[in-house]
Amino acid sequence: MAEDDEDEERKRQERERKKLPLIDRLHGSSPRITASGFEDLRSKRRTGRIVQLPLRLHPRVRAIIDIIMERDKPPSLVVLFEDMLEAYLEKRGPVDKSLLPSDEELVRRYEQERDNRDDE
């Protein structure tokens, strides 16, 4: 009986999530409404950058990155990385889009993993 309720709740959550934009699903909630009744402006700055990519760098690489950050002043290291990735794709050739999972699939995987960890 309890399992049925859990399944029912999970399906209800999935149905609710389906109504949300993918970016909000990634961040786990719809934009917050403040006490004044307006949409929280911070929720408009959502970028979808939620996946971690741990790196261990050589000190000289790190030093070069620091100089670039100082010289060109990219908004963040992530922006610099994205710019470098785009330049790489232009130089070495694009990646076929069909090889990537769809955005829906990527979000679904993320949600599933998050739910699993929450259950634990």
């Binding site: 970028t47 979808g48 990219p74 990735l85 785009e86 990646v95």
Partner: peptide
């Protein structure tokens, strides 16, 4: 070709 997601901060930069 797969393209990177548009990010306002990157575009602005």
């Amino acid at each position: 070709p797969a393209e990177l997601p548009v990010q306002p901060d990157r575009l602005h930069w």
